[in-house]
């Protein structure tokens, strides 16, 4: 794996990440992010936790709405870009933390109005994702919302078939463009329900392969 060219290329992925993601999703990533933020920010003075903020595209949208954000990511190079992106904005209330998603279990319980995960859960293994979602549900205030935007498996069989065929080239392209391999989440709504939250809204794009699912905690 340690080929010179590939390593160099992957090393610079954080810089290319934003453009790469735009290409990979044929531009749909912007609608996904807008929807995420619309679903998460329900009023002024919201406190939001963002899991896997990457280069901070969603973080920026959140801060434009004037909410207080805690943004975590495990990749220091991505976080550095997020910090740079937001450093010149006035009146932001953002805390960046370099840690892995599983470490949200050390944050206080019942303290967020919304928790957002944009395209980061699909990079986790099923056992990690279950742990993180469970912990996230515990950190929500009563009535709070868990909003997840990610790659999902289409529901209709012919779309699933096309998806399967395109999977290998897509994975290769993804690896080259944004330096990570994601695994479409088979049953995102189901996994959210399993944490005891109630799914209140679902949107799909790109032949049913991108979804934003919103789940709420009982009041």
């Amino acid at each position: 794996m340690s080929t010179l060219a590939l390593m160099r290329w992957l090393e610079t992925t954080p810089k290319r990440y934003d453009k790469g993601m735009h290409l990979l999703t044929l531009g749909r990533v912007s609608s996904l992010r807008d929807r995420l933020v619309d679903m998460a920010v329900t009023g002024p003075n919201c406190q939001v936790l963002e899991i896997g903020c990457g280069t901070g595209a969603v973080t920026e949208l959140l801060s434009d709405r004037g909410v207080e954000v805690t943004a975590i990511d495990q990749n220091p190079a991505m976080l550095e870009l997020a910090r740079q992106r937001l450093q010149n904005k006035p009146d932001t209330n953002i805390t960046f933390i370099e840690c892995t998603a599983a470490e949200i279990d050390s944050l206080p319980e019942q303290s967020y109005d919304a928790i957002i995960a944009s395209l980061s859960l699909s990079e986790m293994s099923p056992s990690e994702r279950a742990f993180v979602l469970h912990q996230a549900a515990l950190r929500l205030k009563p009535g709070g919302r868990l909003v997840v935007g990610d790659e999902v498996r289409p529901r209709i069989s012919w779309q699933r078939f096309i998806n399967l065929i395109l999977r290998a080239p897509q994975a290769l392209l993804g690896w080259l463009l944004v330096g990570s391999i994601s695994h479409p989440i088979p049953d995102l709504a189901g996994e959210l329900c399993a944490t005891g939250l109630k799914v209140v809204h679902e949107d799909r794009w790109l032949q049913d392969t991108l979804a934003v699912v919103t789940a709420a905690k009982n009041k």
Binding site: Q74, A77, T100, A102, D105, F131, V132
Partner: peptide
């Protein structure tokens, strides 16, 4: 290359 570090170990042990 940064794909197997402190965070990945912590993730595995915790989850």
């Amino acid at each position: 290359g940064g794909h197997f570090g402190t965070h990945q170990i912590v993730t595995a042990l915790k989850t």
